[in-house]
Write a protein that binds this DNA or RNA. Sequence first.
DNA 1: TGTACTATTGATAACGAATCTCATTACCGT
DNA 2: ACGGTAATGAGATTCGTTATCAATAGTACA
Lengths: 138, 138
Amino acid sequence: MTSSPRKRNTWQREAVRDALGANDGFVSAQGLHATLRESGSPIGLATVYRALADLAVEGEADSLQSLDGESLFRACTPGQHHHHLICRSCGLTVEIEADAVERWAQSVASEHGFTQPRHVVDVFGLCAACSALPGDGG
Amino acid sequence: MTSSPRKRNTWQREAVRDALGANDGFVSAQGLHATLRESGSPIGLATVYRALADLAVEGEADSLQSLDGESLFRACTPGQHHHHLICRSCGLTVEIEADAVERWAQSVASEHGFTQPRHVVDVFGLCAACSALPGDGG
DNA sequence: TGTACTATTGATAACGAATCTCATTACCGT
DNA sequence: ACGGTAATGAGATTCGTTATCAATAGTACA
């Protein structure tokens, strides 16, 4: 509870923020690191992890667990609670707001005597383009 | 859709199924393995992982990702789609059915041209008992 | 019941994501 | 420019999970 530890502005943080913003869907820390390196940045992997964790805490990035357990990140509008509709083939992501779901989560928790409910709500599917492709239609 | 490779009945699978059923909340593969070993079973870790994965595929177990990335499992009623309300302090878990959420997920996907929607919906909170405890009330 | 076939098992190696270490770097207030 | 110190990053480390592969044991069939 001391004064907030001063945070410094480094080109690495900027690079991560930019790279995140330049991406449509969710990306892994490793993937983002690879992308950055390919674009000539000598940024380190650990730094990417740290920057992403910070962005997530500050509310500038959303994070979720991919189906195989790795953390994925995506730039998002700060301070706004929302969920995601994600194409599991191409990664296309749509932010969705759903007051109904918020209220549902709240009420379900209350009904069972639970307090301080937090919820994980994400929808994975195949976007229109990917649905049209053969091989994924099964 | 080839012929299902014949599946054999081993005491190991039974043991995992039983141990899972004897547990109230979600458990990790490692935790379940430890429990089994403590109760005298010489079952191997890899086998526990395989059995749990199979149970999950067959619909006899639900799985979710814990907050720190590990997979947790829990016995559930087969063939029935449901979600969970989980106490993040004591692990108490309540199965919840929510047609409204199912329909919502389906419609949100459709609205955006997504097909084959699957969703992750879990609510984490503090159960009544844990809510009453000091220290978690913050 | 015996036997052949082969799925299953399990100790351990391998893998991979994420974190930690710590000397070095470089941001920032002065 | 200088000094204090947060941030960096290469590599080591941790830890959950999966692959390897010889040995085992379940199952069908005679």
